[in-house]
Amino acid sequence: MILFSEQLKKYRNRKNLSQEDLAQKLFISRQAISKWENGEATPDMDNLVKIAEIFELSLDELVLGKESEKVVERVVETKAEKHMNGWEFLAGYWWLIFPLGGMLSWFLRSLIEILH
């Protein structure tokens, strides 16, 4: 775990955190951080996860020093490109049937009364 101790010290310094600051975030003693950085002890899994979250790293980056491959893919869909078929329209606007049906029945009733 020598690599971990080096990683811990490196990322703690990058975040400008003292051992005391990091210990407070993890709710442990400063001496525990010192032992981890000197390779005298290792944190348990819960603390490893918390440390990775504090430093915004993956566990591989923190423990093994492996850089994670971050692939960010962004898909932007414009309204002009998207064509809605009949089923999608009905699924999205089915509720329009009721007000339109009500207006149509009112109109037809009025029209029938006028014609008779």
Rank of each mutant, 00 (worst) to 15 (best):
M1W: 07
M1K: 04
M1T: 08
I2G: 12
L3N: 12
F4S: 00
S5C: 12
S5D: 09
S5T: 08
S5M: 05
L8E: 08
L8V: 01
K9Y: 10
K9G: 04
K10I: 05
K10R: 09
Y11C: 01
Y11R: 02
K15D: 07
N16L: 06
S18L: 06
Q19M: 15
E20V: 07
A23Y: 01
K25P: 05
L26A: 00
L26Y: 04
F27W: 08
F27V: 11
I28E: 00
S29G: 08
S29I: 02
S29A: 03
R30C: 01
A32Y: 02
A32R: 08
A32L: 06
S34K: 09
K35Y: 10
W36D: 05
W36V: 02
W36K: 02
E37K: 00
A41E: 15
A41Q: 11
A41H: 04
A41P: 01
A41R: 05
P43H: 00
P43C: 03
D44S: 09
D46Y: 11
D46H: 10
N47P: 03
N47E: 05
L48I: 13
L48R: 02
V49G: 00
V49K: 13
K50Q: 14
K50N: 10
K50C: 05
A52F: 08
A52P: 07
F55S: 00
F55Q: 00
F55T: 02
E56S: 14
E56T: 07
L57Y: 06
L57P: 01
S58P: 07
S58F: 09
S58C: 06
D60V: 04
E61T: 15
E61N: 00
L62N: 03
L64V: 06
L64D: 13
L64M: 12
K66Q: 13
K66C: 09
E67R: 14
S68K: 14
S68W: 07
E69C: 09
E69H: 14
K70D: 07
K70L: 10
K70N: 11
V71N: 15
V71R: 11
V71H: 13
V72N: 12
V72R: 08
E73V: 08
E73D: 12
E73Y: 04
R74E: 10
R74N: 10
V75R: 12
V75T: 15
V76T: 14
E77K: 10
T78N: 12
K82D: 05
K82Q: 13
H83S: 12
M84C: 06
N85G: 03
F89M: 07
F89E: 04
F89C: 03
F89L: 13
L90R: 02
A91P: 01
A91R: 14
A91H: 14
G92T: 08
Y93I: 00
W94V: 03
W95M: 06
L96C: 08
I97S: 04
I97C: 04
P99V: 06
P99K: 05
L100C: 08
G101C: 01
G102K: 08
G102D: 05
G102M: 14
M103I: 13
M103N: 04
M103T: 07
S105Q: 06
L108T: 12
L108Y: 10
R109N: 09
R109I: 14
L111C: 07
L111K: 09
I112W: 13
E113M: 10
E113Y: 11
I114D: 12
I114T: 11
H116D: 09
